[in-house]
Computed example of a mutant assay.
Amino acid sequence: MLTTRFTKGHGTGNDFVILDDPDGLDLTEQLVRWLCDRRFGIGGDGLLRAVRAGDVPEWTGDPNLWFMDYRNADGSIAQMCGNGLRVFARYLTTRGLLEGAEADIATRAGVKHVRLLDDGLVRADLGPVRVLDDAVDISCGGRVRAARPADVGNPHAVVLLDPDEHVADLDLTVAPTWQPRGVFPEGVNVEFVEPLDGDRVRMRVHERGVGETLSCGTGTAAVAAVMAATTGRLGPWTVEVPGGTITVDLDGGAALIGPAVLVATGEVTLPDSLDLAR
């Protein structure tokens, strides 16, 4: 019988399984899906694994940095996760793996800087967001809407709703589709945005490899960047998501400011039916 330590955390309701002791495990898609399953495993929108960057074969930078090995709930590998980055920083600090209130974290989208603030929030600097001019149509709920692509180290398509539409009325139980298909060959996170007053918007998101989530950190950065490109206002933008509120500062690149909460630690017994041993 194989067991492993885990921590459970979330950033505005976007929740993650964090492995405490992954050394004896082969992190297969099957294992990730099981751990993230809300009925048979622990449950989460994704999985975070803390490893030294030098142990990641494709990493060519500082080998001593902590590397955020992020997987979607379906087991697929993702380049970045803004909420996950803040939760990862909270986890490393709580476990005594980081000294001080700020650090650089290695990710598949490069090195990102994080800072724990005095009010309990965490700031994660994601770097520049590229808002693209490609014409993309998003189909959702039997309706086709124009979207603006944005690159935050991972792909996004941002849909600005019409003035008479509300994000609460959308059906996101079925994954949106897009045309032309070749624009997002590895899939895409789709954000639907309802402008509010001033530099404030309301957002819902369908994440690739997961489905609808209560929040998406890189998605809020994509939304803020698209709103800035559309309105000419840099904000800071306040993005309301079903799981809470995130502030996006676009001065010098996108920075997310929001909560990161660890809610549980424990030991999980892995099912014998999975081939988990190295």
Rank of each mutant, 00 (worst) to 15 (best):
T3M: 12
K8C: 07
H10T: 05
G11C: 06
E29K: 15
V32K: 01
G41L: 05
L48S: 03
A50V: 12
V51L: 11
V51R: 12
G54H: 05
W59M: 06
W59T: 01
W59G: 07
G61V: 02
D62L: 15
M68A: 07
A73P: 03
G82P: 01
G84C: 05
A89F: 04
L92K: 03
T94Q: 14
R95N: 02
D104L: 08
I105S: 07
A109P: 08
K112F: 09
H113K: 14
D118T: 14
D119E: 09
G120K: 15
G120M: 14
D125H: 11
G127F: 05
A135C: 11
D137R: 02
C140F: 00
R143A: 00
R143H: 06
R145H: 06
A146H: 14
D151S: 10
P163H: 04
D164G: 10
H166E: 15
A168D: 15
A175W: 03
P176I: 03
T177D: 00
T177W: 02
V183F: 04
D199N: 11
R200I: 14
R202H: 06
R208P: 04
T213S: 09
C216E: 01
A225L: 07
A225E: 02
A228G: 01
R233Y: 01
L234R: 12
L234Q: 15
E240F: 12
P242K: 09
G243K: 10
T247P: 07
V248S: 07
L256P: 03
I257S: 10
L262K: 06
V263E: 12
G266Y: 11
D272V: 11
L274P: 02
D275R: 15
L276H: 00
